[in-house]
Design a protein around this nucleic acid. Structure first.
Length: 597
RNA sequence: GCCUCCGUAGUUCAAUGGAUAGAACAAAAGUUUCCUAAACUUUAGAUCCGGGUUCGAUUCCCGGCGAAGGUACCA
């Protein structure tokens, strides 16, 4: 049982004895004592003053006295304003530490045979351009939240829906056909996704020029955008694609395969993966037939031009297009089909979409549409809506070339990590392969932590001109602490000290040390909360606090040089458990930790 | 216009309705004959404005101001 629960019960008992009144568990607020006060756990007294009919100070005093006299667990107390701070017996913390030591999966719940399945969709790229920083946030969040849910006992299926068809792809294809002169990844030396992205930009430029020209000739903007020959051609190509035109399909396949080769490299570098990949080209027909069924059953309606719509005004929303007038499908059509196929393929208890908050409306609508189509699970979709990554000047725009490219950014981070290591002379005894490995861990660790430490729901800012830090509240700071502990443990092993024996509860430990154990004891509930709130940031911030505290301890106390061998043993065990929690916690974030750095 | 989200040190981020609003970076000063100084210590610095609810509000409610996103044939 957690210490907060134990104390909560003790407080409830004491109030019953002192004031002969039952008190609701919800009224008992227990929190960790703030650093500047003495004690381990704090009880908020304000809710009890009415019951006690005394001042908060007097009430706190009475409860404190009762607790100290009647429970060996609580050895001291102080009251400040309406807060009762109690100190827990030190041996309790040592026992807690001994329990952690024998549990190699400390903090993680096992995934049982009959555990429910959570499907998590993330990444979901379009195949017309390479991945950028926004995708990085998506991928890191998706991958991490999958780890966290597994740690909370869910069976997790990671999935990716690749948006491999649609008007955007046709734009790249058309531009390549017109201006590409047969260029390939091999002939150009470009990564496939970057090559295709290049033609997406070329299309946009040429298209804008056409629109401008039409407007010069007197057309208004709206008409010009529709009349531009390139747009008309792209739409024709999409129609040809949906009609299975052999030539269009062949080009489509070729260019998409270039993109996939590129994405594979990016995903591998980023360290993310998927259990099942869906392609829009395989799911949109199911979506179309679902929409057609809905039309027959009068759930949807058709306009005179042939387009199909859902009227959601009764739900307080707008009307939503489901099939264009020319019969081609849109984003929503595809998502309906994909959802249906997924529920056919897996026994899904919870379906989670990791998608940016710019699509809040889309998922609200999707949920309602599925429900209207008769799928009971439609209402239970979870949209894990995360905030945008913005530049100091505002939103990234791929067409304006302001995006921060994923491959470039990762490469820069790793290069910086390597330079820093060299400057500090940390890896002088390592061979090239080890240096590569550590620079990769540290560079990516810095990037991943930078992104994951922020509350996912909030927009965040990234300034490309300021490099991501390696000092302070950063991934490398946490990695460094791990490496440092491992170094101490290696030396202990050389001295043949057995760190696996339990710690004696007889030894006297300091305030700093019991605080560290208390923080370690919070790890399981932090994982639980991170899962419930879908927030890897909670784990990131927890680890930072823990490591910050440990570094102070490391600075002020001796470990291997401690003369009292029981104390030395305790400090080694404590350090090892800190390292274990760092490794597990960082693992949940998808960040590797090195043995040395 | 309508809907949603956001507004905390110079900057980037924290804070289940609780104590003196925490960190980091940047700025200033210091710590290494000692287990890794990617560390540690010290100084200075913030809740957009106005009301309300509450013993207590950065947090909840209302009204301003400011920024972002969505809003029917882009995904």
């Amino acid at each position: 049982m957690k210490i907060e629960q134990k104390i909560g019960q003790l407080v409830a008992n004491s109030i019953e004895v002192l004031y002969s009144q039952q008190v609701d568990q919800k009224q008992i607020q227990i929190q960790k004592t703030k650093k500047e006060f003495e004690g381990d756990v704090t009880i908020v007294i304000f809710p009890f003053v009415k019951i006690a009919r005394k001042s908060p100070e007097a009430t706190g005093q009475e409860i404190g006295e009762y607790l100290v006299q009647n429970t060996p667990l609580i050895v001291a107390f102080n009251v400040i304003k309406g807060f009762l701070n109690v100190s827990i017996q030190k041996s309790y913390w040592i026992e807690e530490l001994n329990l952690m030591q024998v549990n190699p999966h400390y903090g993680m719940s096992p995934v049982t045979e009959d555990a429910p399945t959570m499907m998590i969709e993330y990444s979901s790229p379009n195949t017309n351009k390479p991945l950028h920083l926004g995708h990085i946030r998506n991928n890191l969040l998706g991958y991490s939240i999958a780890n966290i849910q597994k740690a909370n006992g869910w069976k997790v299926v990671k999935t990716n829906i690749v948006n491999d068809r649609g008007i955007h792809i046709c734009k790249s294809m058309l531009a390549w056909q017109k201006f590409g002169k047969g260029e390939t990844p091999e002939s150009s030396g470009m990564k496939g996704d970057h090559l295709v992205g290049k033609y997406y930009v070329i299309f946009d430029k040429a298209y804008k020029a056409e629109v401008a020209e039409l407007m010069d000739k007197g057309a208004n903007e709206e008409d010009a955008k529709k009349m531009a020959p390139l747009m008309i051609e792209a739409q024709k190509m999409l129609l040809a694609w949906e009609n299975n035109d052999a030539e269009v399909r062949k080009l489509w396949q070729t260019m998409n395969s270039w993109v996939y080769d590129g994405f594979d490299i990016t995903y591998r570098q980023l360290g993310v993966d998927f259990d099942k990949i869906y392609y829009e080209s395989n799911t949109y027909l199911t979506g179309k037939s679902e929409v057609e069924r809905g039309l027959k059953e009068n759930v949807f309606y058709q306009r005179p031009d042939g387009s199909v719509w859902a009227d959601l005004t009764a739900d307080g929303l707008d009307e939503k297009l489901l099939l264009r007038a020319d019969g081609t499908s849109v984003y929503m059509t595809q998502d309906i089909g994909t959802a249906k196929l997924r529920y056919n393929d897996f026994d899904i208890k919870k379906m989670v979409y990791v998608v940016g908050n710019e699509q809040n409306y889309h998922f609200q609508v999707l949920s309602i549409l599925l429900d209207k189509l008769g799928y009971a699970w439609g209402k239970n979709l979870v949209h894990f809506s995360y905030g945008m990554v913005e530049l100091p000047e505002g939103k990234m725009k791929s067409r304006e070339g302001t995006v921060v490219d994923a491959d470039d950014l990762m490469a820069e981070m790793i290069a910086t990590a390597r330079e820093t290591s060299q400057e500090l002379g940390k890896l002088d005894n390592c061979n090239e392969q080890e240096i590569d490995q550590i620079a990769g861990m540290v560079g990516l660790g810095a990037l991943k932590y930078f992104i994951l430490k922020v509350d996912p729901r909030k927009n965040m800012t990234f300034n490309p001109k300021e490099s991501i830090d390696f000092n302070g509240n950063t991934g490398p700071f946490i990695q460094y602490t791990h490496a440092r502990i491992k170094s101490v443990l290696r030396k202990a092993a050389e001295q043949e000290i057995d760190v696996h024996a339990p710690v004696s509860t007889e030894i006297i430990i300091s305030e700093k040390e019991s605080t560290l154990i208390q923080m370690l004891a919070e790890f399981p509930q932090t994982i639980r909360q991170a899962g419930e709130e879908f927030s890897p940031a909670l784990i990131a911030n927890y680890l930072y606090d823990l490591v910050k505290e440990y570094n102070q301890f490391y600075h002020d106390f001796s470990i291997l040089r401690e003369e009292n061998s029981a104390l030395k043993h305790f400090r080694l065990v404590l350090s090892e458990e800190i390292a274990k929690v760092i490794k597990t916690g960082m693992g949940l974030l998808g960040i590797d930790v090195p043995e040395r750095m």
